[in-house]
Design a protein around this nucleic acid. Structure first.
Length: 158
RNA sequence: UCUGCACACCGGGCUGCCGCUGCGGGAAUAAUCCCGGAGAGGAAAGUCCGGACAGCACAGGGCAUCCUGCUACCUAACGGGUAGGGUCUGCAAGCGCGAGUCUGCAGAUACGGCAAGUGCAACAGAAAGCAUACCGCCUACGUGCCGGGCAACCGGCACCGGUAAGGGUGAAAUCGUAGAGUAAGUGCCUACGGGUAUGUGUGGCGACAUACAUACCGGGUAAACCCCAGGAGCUGAAAGGCCAUGUACACCGGCGCCAAGGGCUGCUCGUCCAAUGCCGGGGGGUAGACCGAUAGAGCCCUCCCGUGAGGGACGGCCUAGAUAAAUGGCAGCCAUGCUCCCAAAGAGCAUACAGAAUCCGGCUUACAGGUGUGUAGAGAGG
RNA sequence: CGGAGUGUAGCGCAGCCCGGUAGCGCGCUUCGUUCGGGACGAAGAGGCCGGAGGUUCGAAUCCUCUCACUCCGA
């Protein structure tokens, strides 16, 4: 099971694909990440929070994008922001290959847009590179969720 | 050619690379991969109305609440639309001494009822709703006093009064203009004009229009309560249905080692029960998956009917279906607009409003720029 | 997706139902009091009631549209 993830990481021509498996969809995992995730990177336009979440079948890193309705009233502005962030992640996620993944966990990232203006492509892309670099450096120290309090119901992965 | 108005439509394009979500085909146990083709709007928005659809409720009638309100038609339905009627406003021309009237054009119109009841109207003003009299006008009728006169009577003042023409207040003051009449005046009377109600005739499906006759002329406000007529059962896809791993559990069946407990029995054996353990069945049901959910009051062309909104017929087409939520990014070229520039070339910047969430029909609101048709006006040429 | 509500002086709120004068507290300004400040006393300024249109003689109030904000429903 671990070998599947390793193969995913190590496939020689590294894939720039971004499938649904790389999006965080489970409600319970989302709540754990929001409440107990550790803040890793901050800049003026966005911040990033990360944690390890349990995975029975091994999983690639998953991300969750947030853009507040307070910042952008119009739906097309929020869509635009999330698309830029996702595209920046897609082109830089290969940096996460270097991280040693604990057995039975996967890396979950939460990226929150905080700027008042629509993102510019060049700045966002540079910021994403720095942010993922910070994740690589702090990966070993990230919390493993859920904590002991919420642990018991053992199964999470459908 | 320019400008305005109405209606209809478009609202960036092409190429390459890297990606995303369904669908079809292929490979594979599966994860997944490859190929092909598809992938936001006219408003997807606001959620202001109306339906479809779904669940629940439902003998019949009434009350309450809410909504609608000229007429006919369209429609699945509507508070929407079309056509028409009335009213009001503005402009122009004509008629009339005047009040007004008539015609044309343009625009607006939530447009049942204040001749059922209740309420309201600040300030100003005499008075704002069972009437009343500030300034003004008058002193005819009646009384008193004074003056003049032989007298009849005349003049003046006061009282009792008359009046609602004029002034003034106001958004609004008891139909308007002119005349007769009068002490002065008044729809008191007459003529003309305006309006209301009733009846009859004519035209129209109808709203209503028009003619004649009779009676009459002390308001406004219902987007005030209210009355009248018509309509609405309630709740909304988080509706509703279906499948269901794991954990825990109601219940059922089977098996069972050691030890402890209770009953048959005071003790022992035996047996039964309970508890615990294991295995199997099993229901509700959490996370989650699927259906609902994308072929429809559908779109396009042509023809016919209708003033029109719309309706009908033949033929053709398949045109997003996501769900922590796809429809994107980069590069180049072109197009358009703005700025720099006398201009051209060139350069730079920008590319409207805005993102499907069950689906339709409307309304309202936002929108750079552009195209076509019709129509009105102006100018130029033939 | 479906509902409910609020915009009034610098701030927090009345007034709206049932139309006519826009008010309260804190704050602000000036003066007095004090050696000075605070507290206290006296006087005063500050609003076209979120925006647009309509009904009405007259709209913060009634009706329609619109903008912003808040809350509720798994």
């Amino acid at each position: 099971m671990i070998s599947r993830y390793i193969r995913f990481v190590a496939t020689p021509p590294f894939s720039f694909r971004f499938s649904k498996a790389e999006k965080l969809c489970l409600r319970t995992h989302t709540e754990w990440l929001l409440t107990q995730g550790q803040s890793v990177y901050k800049c003026s336009s966005f911040r990033l929070r990360a944690a390890w979440l349990p995975a029975r079948p091994a999983s690639p890193p998953k991300i969750l994008l947030s853009v507040s309705k307070r910042l952008f009233r119009r739906a097309h502005e929020r869509n635009r922001t999330k698309r830029v962030l996702r595209e920046a992640y897609r082109l830089h996620k290969h940096a996460l290959q270097e991280i040693a993944v604990p057995d039975g966990y996967y890396l979950a990232l939460h990226i929150v847009w905080q700027g008042r203006r629509l993102p510019s492509w060049d700045k966002t892309r540079a910021g994403m590179a720095l942010a993922l670099e910070a994740v690589v450096q702090q990966a070993a120290a990230l919390p493993r969720l859920p904590g002991l309090a919420q642990l018991p119901p053992a199964q999470q992965e459908p």
